[in-house]
Design a protein around this nucleic acid. Structure first.
Length: 418
RNA sequence: GUGAGUGUAGCGCAAUUGGUUAGAGCUUCGGAUUGUGGUUCCGGCGGUUGAGGGUUCAAGUCCCUUCACUCACCCCA
């Protein structure tokens, strides 16, 4: 019988990598704390409706990428394809944003999208996510963008590009949408097949199409900046001013249309050239209508998601540091079977004192145990002599010098030296 | 969902135009005067060549099917 393997698009994060993941998450945690964001843990599955209404019925995510199933009660459940909808749901449900209060929340964990896997794209992938809810002003947008940039700065990522745009609001976007439809109607024969269906469903997405012919048509399409209402125009100007004040450089891309319907006003992405085709390490924007689209009051929000898998790829590619790999400091070796019990006792004693210690439990010979010390700093050796003297032979594995230490002093001896 | 490429030991690889019993290296395990690691030396374990079928005297090698992985399209983190 063939061995069962992990489902397509999933993978195991093994010891050789997991400590690097911990480094990234710890860095995120510290950065979030410095920016005043509080961590939340949310469900990995939600009612399907949350995403179909929140993310948008016509988005690729909802149309073809969700892991949806009926649970035993007949409810339609979906493994979260993104984090924002869940955070907004939790904020409303727990009244974190009532009476003018705002909430700054962050989270991290797995997301699920049924796509064909490739470099930097998995069916189960991990995102670090931050959301600022209840603040309509551009200051919140700037804070979120600066948070993203600062996280990457701390992680040591280089050669990133910040791309921003404004996609308008419920007042001005319909106007722009109509202009686009009128324009593209006149160039139907030059559009690709998918763009023809986008024409009446989501014409903004045509701007984003990478098809050459569509690109040429889109080059001459009406400019969104000519259609922005005063409020959106001013908001966008303030975001840009804020970014410049903080000394960030960025690129404007009026064709940046993100694949999720809930974005209003600010949309941005952070791109890396070291990722291959999937070049976004983070993306986000403002979503002032999301709360009301899932049945809540109108609560403005802005946030971002960062792909941990992709950050990892870029960091490896650029040779970034992940800090020190965790290592055991002390190896306790038994010389002769009679001392195996004493070895386990001493090992536990060291561990109780927060000293990382290891001993053999598989019956290895003394020689084999000594071979296993690896990168330890000290070896503690217990044989019949040591048991008789109530002592331990402690060998410094860096200089090879060995001392005999009274058993009761060993923990202190090691503690002061690791 | 579409396209291309790749599947040989735990890992990364080799095997002439199809030709004996598929090989080294690393890892692992054991050993080198029976109480002392990293280096070195010696040895052992390890494979239904992804799976199934076909062509052939003969298939890791050629053909078909299938599965998996990778990259790309699409879309995005």
């Amino acid at each position: 019988m063939a061995i069962i393997n992990a489902p397509r698009g999933t993978r195991d994060i093994l010891p050789s990598e997991s400590w690097k993941w911990a480094y990234i998450i710890n860095m995120a945690s510290q950065t979030m704390k410095d920016f005043g964001f509080s961590e939340v843990h949310l469900p990995i599955f939600e009612h399907t409706e949350l995403f179909s209404r929140g993310v948008g019925e016509t988005t690729d995510i909802v149309e073809k990428e969700m892991y949806t199933f009926n649970d035993r009660g007949g409810r339609s459940i979906t493994l979260r394809p993104e984090a924002t909808a869940g955070v907004v749901r939790a904020t409303l449900e727990n009244n974190l944003c009532v009476q003018g209060a705002s909430a700054k929340l962050w989270s991290w964990g797995p997301m699920f999208r049924h796509e064909r896997p490739q470099k930097g794209r998995y069916r189960q992938f991990y995102q670090i996510d931050a959301e600022c809810l209840g603040i309509a002003g551009a200051g919140a947008d700037v804070e979120i963008i600066s948070l993203t940039i600062e996280l990457f700065r701390r992680l040591g990522l280089k050669n990133l590009e910040v791309v921003i745009n404004s996609v308008g609001c419920e007042k001005c976007r319909p106007v722009y949408r109509q202009k686009l439809i009128e324009y593209f109607e006149g160039h139907k024969d030059e559009l690709c097949e998918t763009c023809l269906t986008r024409l009446d469903r989501n014409p903004l997405r045509i701007l984003d199409c990478k098809n050459e012919s569509c690109g040429h048509v889109a080059d001459n399409a009406p400019d969104i900046y000519d259609s922005l209402c005063d409020e959106c125009r001013e908001h966008f100007a303030e975001v840009r001013k804020g970014l410049e004040r903080l000394g960030f450089s960025y690129r404007l891309n009026k064709r940046l249309v993100r694949g999720l319907d809930y974005y209003t006003k600010t949309a941005y992405e952070i791109l890396s050239g070291d990722l291959g085709s999937q070049n976004a390490v983070a993306g986000g924007g403002r979503y002032d209508n999301l709360a009301s689209s899932i049945g809540g009051p109108k609560v403005p929000g802005v946030g971002f998601a960062c792909g941990v898998d992709r950050v990892m790829i870029v960091m490896e590619e650029q040779g970034c540091s992940f800090g020190k790999m965790p290592a055991v400091d002390v190896y306790v070796a038994a010389l002769g079977d009679d001392s195996r019990g004493a070895v386990q006792v001493l090992t536990y004693e060291l561990r109780k004192n927060n000293i990382a210690a290891e001993c053999d439990t598989s019956g290895k010979s003394f020689k084999a145990q000594m071979k296993a010390v690896g990168s330890c700093k000290f070896a503690c050796i217990i044989g019949t002599d040591e048991i008789a003297n109530h002592s331990v032979s402690v060998k410094n594995l860096q200089d090879g010098l060995q001392e005999t230490i009274a058993y009761d002093d060993v923990t202190e001896y090691i503690k002061s030296r690791v």
